[in-house]
């Protein structure tokens, strides 16, 4: 445990020194407040730059608070996920390339400690960023569109953070299989997109898939009730993340990383 904590601290220090602790929260915050603000100003923006014909009238429905939070989540679902993958895509392969991992693993450091400490440090960054982003989104929602309960926001955070955890696990998993950063990025995005696609095409059979989480979160906000679908999705997401983590430890131990 002490060994794990030492590696964890090393990771935290490294992520601080390369500014990940600063830019990832800022980018996530930017992504989550962008949509509520642009939606709010859409009529003005169209007025000013839209070159609309004289007398054109646009009726834009004002989004409800729930819709506003969901706009933030849909941004996070696409660009936010990309940021998380980009942030974590070189954590292990980068160290293999620069030789740091050799220096660490030549000592009696267990492979599982090494992988899980990295995993935990990235989870911590992404959850902190998600929290900052959601607080920003909540602030603007209350300011522009109406009240949203803070408890509801905490629920959104609790469930949506599982999706980020799944993305990190996936990225770490590919880190232990392939060596090239580009391929890690590509594979992770392909898997996430395939999952999204399968879920939307075969929604009936993939009702509990991890990418269904945000849909269930919306239902939760609208009906004010945590459905079994949401809980099952959450459980499956946690299980998948843990399986990926175990898988990455096994792959990393077998040292069969593809060039």
């Amino acid at each position: 445990m002490r060994q794990w904590y030492t590696i964890f601290q090393k990771e935290m220090l490294e992520n601080w020194r390369n500014f990940k602790w600063v830019w990832v929260p800022l980018v996530i915050l930017l992504l989550s407040i962008m949509d509520p603000i642009t939606t709010y100003y859409m009529p003005e923006i169209l007025d000013a730059v839209g070159n609309l014909p004289e007398g054109a009238v646009f009726k834009m429905p004002t989004p409800s608070p729930v819709e506003s939070i969901m706009m933030s989540l849909s941004q996070l679902n696409t660009l936010g996920v990309l940021v998380i993958i980009l942030m974590s895509m070189q954590t292990i392969t980068g160290e293999i390339k620069s030789g740091v991992s050799e220096i660490i693993l030549v000592k009696p450091v267990s492979y599982s400690n090494y992988v899980t400490a990295k995993w935990a440090s990235f989870i911590l960054i992404s959850l902190a960023s998600l929290f900052v982003g959601l607080i920003g989104s909540w602030y603007y929602t209350n300011l522009l569109f109406g009240d949203l309960n803070f408890i509801d926001l905490l629920k959104v955070f609790a469930f949506y953070s599982l999706w980020f955890m799944f993305i990190i696990s996936l990225s770490i998993f590919f880190n232990t299989i392939v060596k090239s950063q580009g391929i890690i990025l590509f594979l992770t995005i392909v898997v996430v997109m395939a999952l999204n696609l399968l879920t939307s095409v075969l929604g009936k059979y993939f009702n509990w898939s991890p990418s269904q989480l945000s849909q269930h979160i919306e239902d939760m906000l609208l009906t004010n009730h945590i459905s079994t679908d949401l809980i099952m999705s959450a459980i499956i997401t946690i299980a998948a993340s843990l399986l990926l983590l175990i898988g990455s430890i096994t792959f990393f131990q077998s040292k069969k990383i593809v060039e």
Partner: peptide
Amino acid sequence: GLEQINWGIIAPLIVIQLIL
């Protein structure tokens, strides 16, 4: 239209970009 924009709402966006 743009003159009526409440800068208190937009300012955080600009601040975040500047920090980055």
